[in-house]
């Protein structure tokens, strides 16, 4: 599958002539992706939208600060000055939602970055080396995967306490075994290829084979799992924060915004309940749509997959 995606480097598009080859290829790939997987492209667009807002948060929220309290404008309905209304401390909800994307994305990307990389390395080592390394790591994975993610997170937070760093630790612990199991399976099947045997016959070291031959082959499943985990973790952080076991106040976390006072005041100030939820839903759905599309394109076994 990778070969087919990587092969078409012959430039046929007339309009792209003169454009440096590398850029042209990326553009064309994106264009083809959008045509084959419109829903996936929509998901990518939504994700990019939120990433952009998160990066440019101060520019996107002129005249407001996510922490500034002003009781004279508390609980105002959406209007010209505060686009999505204000909360009970008079903080601008739009600004807090925009800054909330920073927290969500940072937590999700950090957890997937650390946990996914650990899972990737452990998965390749486990699959390629086998023997006791494999036995030991797989027992550990069995234990961790025996529990649903949220329960594991709750148990870890019971031990560690709440806080942004603790959530990241909990989510990292959840992501590593998922990643590892998939990467291990992919490594095992890649290992059967003749070119691995050829490489070994030519005297390549195990390290070289793992880096040069196994790694490129396990990258597609890595990206698929990472994308789905990102969506899952956005939801998980929101849930934990909603339950009061995640991001502590006053940081603007989407889940936290929906708990406590938002619930109590839902009848008089429904915007407090509506908008942070829309933010969570769009970002999670963006990652899910993108992940589904990548799975359809890259994982031949799920070719006729459930969404696409």
């Amino acid at each position: 599958m990778m070969e087919r995606e990587a092969a078409p480097t012959t430039s046929r598009g007339v309009s792209l002539r003169g454009v440096p080859r590398q850029i042209g290829t990326v553009q064309r790939r994106l264009f083809r992706f959008a045509r084959r997987k419109p829903l996936g492209a929509a998901g990518l667009a939504v994700v990019l939208f939120w990433v952009f807002l998160a990066v440019a948060a101060p520019l996107a929220t002129p005249g407001h600060d996510p922490y500034d309290q002003d009781y004279t404008v508390a609980l105002q309905a959406p209007g010209a000055d505060s686009w999505l209304g204000t909360d009970r401390f008079g903080r601008d909800l739009y600004t807090r939602v925009v800054y909330g994307s920073r927290i969500s994305l940072v937590i999700a990307f950090t957890a997937v970055g650390i946990g996914g990389t650990l899972g990737l390395l452990a998965g390749i080592a486990s699959g390629y080396i086998g023997r006791w390394v494999d036995g030991l790591l797989m027992r550990l994975v069995d234990i961790l995967l025996a529990f649903p993610g949220l329960l594991l997170a709750l148990a870890l937070i019971a031990v560690l306490g709440a806080g942004v760093d603790r959530i990241i630790i909990a989510l990292t612990v959840i992501s590593a075994p998922w990643m590892m199991r998939v990467i291990r399976a992919q490594t095992l099947s890649t290992k059967q290829n003749l070119y691995i045997e050829a490489a070994r016959a030519m005297g390549a070291s195990s390290g070289r084979i793992m880096v040069r031959h196994i790694l490129p082959n396990v990258l597609p499943p890595y990206l698929i799992i990472a994308t789905s985990l990102l969506g899952f973790f956005i939801l998980m952080e929101a849930t934990l924060s909603f339950l009061g076991l995640g991001v502590p106040p006053p940081d603007p976390s989407w889940g936290r915004m929906l708990s406590g006072s938002a619930q109590e005041r839902a009848q008089t100030a429904p915007w407090l309940v509506v908008f942070p939820g829309i933010a969570i839903t769009t970002l999670v759905m963006g990652f899910n749509l993108l992940g589904d599309a990548l799975r359809d394109l890259w994982d031949p076994r799920l070719r006729s997959g459930p969404t696409g």
Binding site: L39, G231, L235, A238, T239, F242, G255, L258, A262, Q263, A266, Q267, P270, V273, V274, G277, I280, T281, V284, M285, N288, L289, D292, P306, T307
Partner: peptide, 22 residues
């Protein structure tokens, strides 16, 4: 189905309460 899977359950619950009471 994709839409339902992306919806946070607790938010859906809050919306049900919001609409139900209102």
């Amino acid at each position: 189905a994709i839409f339902l899977l992306g919806l946070p359950g607790f938010w859906l619950g809050l919306l049900v309460l919001l609409v139900g009471v209102r």
